[in-house]
Amino acid sequence: MTALFVSWGAPFGVAWFLSTIIGILVIALPVMLAVAMLIYADRKIWAAMALRRGPNVVGPFGLLQSFADGAKVFLQETIIPSAANKALFIIAPIITFTVALLAWAVVPFDVGVVLADINVGLLYILAISSLGVYGVVLAGWASNSKYPFYSAIRASAQMISYEVSIGFILICVVLWAGSFNLTAIVESQKGYYGFLNGNGFNPLLFPMAIMFLISAMAETARAPFDLTEAESELVAGYQTEYSSMAFALYWLGEYANVILMCALNAILFWGGYLPPVDWAPLYYVPGILWLFAKILFFFFVFSWVRATVPRYRYDQLMRLGWKIFLPTSLFFVFLVSGFLMLTRYGGAQ
């Protein structure tokens, strides 16, 4: 696209700037639309699992429910508690929302269809997701209220704990792919046993795929790990004092994070934009559709788990993170690197 603007007579820098902004809009707007539709999908899935109807009034099959909710929230008054730290109280939801969108910059939708094809793509995602905790912590502190503060403490401990094991899981994938670049990671998953695409089919990485799925739920604080907003203990957690658009920003950011984690699951372990089977006719389907199909599948798994699994106790959550996931993922780092040393990198030298 930069070339197009250059051919219209713009200098290269300006052309690059314009095309990047267009690229950002082309990614961010559909993500927001997807968030709206996935909130609807989530509610429909829970409803179906609880033998209810779910949203079915606004629009055909209730399809416009999320937009109605959005409009309602938009028209409400933003209430800032008088004891709150105003600047931080307003900044906190903005951080959550921005960070949730930032990470999409490095997600490859097809070969070469990526906003920023940087060679530290995975590290960028780790860096961005480690920023996400500030939105929650600041909200908890700035609200100047008990429940948000408890929730913020829980959230930050939970996110940091699971980031450690996610880091080790990602290292396994990076070792196997030999690159931090997400496109390179996807390409490296081609042709397991000659016909399957995806690290998940690798017996050494399959346990990592499962652990990553669970850690992703914990990292995004989805049920069964949604202790940060456990309504029986903490009212609405760190969002308790929020209303109107500030609340909506948390809502959107949370779902954007969930979709991102689904996309990462697909990209790191199940072949991203590659078809699941390495068979020529399947490559006629555009890669972006395969990626979307995988994202939707994982999203279904997320809401399936949310609808069926009861919430963890906080000590159980910490135990799972530190005593089970951390040692296991560390062990697998040794296993994967040892296997690669013995095979791909030519044995002990």
Partner: peptide, 25 residues
């Protein structure tokens, strides 16, 4: 030095500063 930059964000912003914030709060 994009690698160092990312590590700076992951380690300092993502972990060390969160602990600072935790204690100070």
């Amino acid at each position: 030095a994009e690698f160092i930059a990312m590590l700076l964000v992951i380690v300092y912003v993502g972990a060390v500063a969160v602990l600072f914030l935790f204690v100070v709060m």
